[in-house]
Simulated assay, not measured.
Amino acid sequence: MSLVAQLVVALVALLHVWFLVLEMFLWTRPSGRRAFGLSAEFAQQSRVLAANQGLYNGFLAAGLLWGLWLGAAGRPVLLFFLGCVLVAGLFGGFTATRKVLWIQALPALIAITLVLLA
């Protein structure tokens, strides 16, 4: 796999680690509320749901890092987890906010393309 493909996959993984941090640890703090445009009251009411969502983002990051660690044998793992990221990004982009398409779905699509071309 090309270095560019590996770097883009690593970037997608790091994005999902950041989503985990935002959703599990910063959700009710000013930086987390600002990132998602939440009121303090709503953030407090939805913090358990956000933590659950953050955990899932952590699983996506772990799967991508595992695929990278496997090297050439990890290609199917990478494609599976990138596909999950893409579907989640599309769903979020159409049901939550369009910016999810650019922040989550587009990087996953680029990474899938690069992994398939490598």
Results as ranks from 00 to 15, higher is better:
100 V>W: 15
102 W>R: 11
20 L>N: 10
36 F>S: 08
86 L>K: 00
26 L>Q: 12
101 L>N: 02
37 G>R: 11
19 F>P: 00
72 A>M: 08
93 G>N: 01
45 Q>S: 13
31 S>K: 13
68 L>T: 07
35 A>V: 04
103 I>F: 06
106 L>R: 01
27 W>L: 08
46 S>Y: 10
64 L>A: 03
37 G>V: 10
47 R>I: 00
75 R>E: 14
94 F>E: 04
105 A>H: 04
79 L>Q: 05
48 V>I: 14
13 A>Y: 12
93 G>V: 01
103 I>Q: 13
79 L>A: 07
71 G>N: 08
54 G>V: 01
64 L>R: 02
83 G>Q: 04
65 L>C: 10
80 F>Q: 05
49 L>Y: 14
36 F>H: 12
32 G>L: 08
95 T>R: 15
10 A>P: 06
95 T>Y: 05
11 L>P: 01
41 E>A: 15
67 G>C: 06
75 R>K: 14
19 F>E: 10
42 F>G: 00
36 F>R: 09
56 Y>F: 00
44 Q>P: 02
100 V>S: 04
74 G>F: 09
54 G>Q: 05
104 Q>W: 07
78 L>C: 08
60 L>N: 10
80 F>K: 07
57 N>Y: 01
60 L>T: 06
49 L>M: 14
56 Y>M: 14
101 L>E: 01
19 F>D: 12
15 L>Y: 13
100 V>I: 15
11 L>N: 02
108 A>K: 04
99 K>V: 14
16 H>N: 12
8 V>C: 08
49 L>K: 13
13 A>M: 05
86 L>Q: 00
82 L>G: 02
74 G>W: 06
84 C>K: 03
17 V>D: 07
50 A>I: 03
37 G>C: 11
89 G>Y: 10
103 I>K: 12
61 A>D: 05
22 L>W: 10
56 Y>V: 07
10 A>E: 06
41 E>W: 00
58 G>A: 06
35 A>W: 05
18 W>S: 12
8 V>P: 07
31 S>C: 11
105 A>Q: 03
17 V>S: 08
21 V>S: 04
107 P>T: 04
65 L>N: 04
23 E>Q: 15
101 L>D: 01
95 T>D: 04
37 G>H: 10
30 P>M: 07
82 L>I: 04
27 W>R: 09
103 I>L: 15
92 G>D: 02
40 A>Y: 07
81 F>W: 15
87 V>T: 03
96 A>F: 15
84 C>I: 01
99 K>W: 15
70 L>E: 14
99 K>S: 14
90 L>M: 13
15 L>G: 13
22 L>R: 09
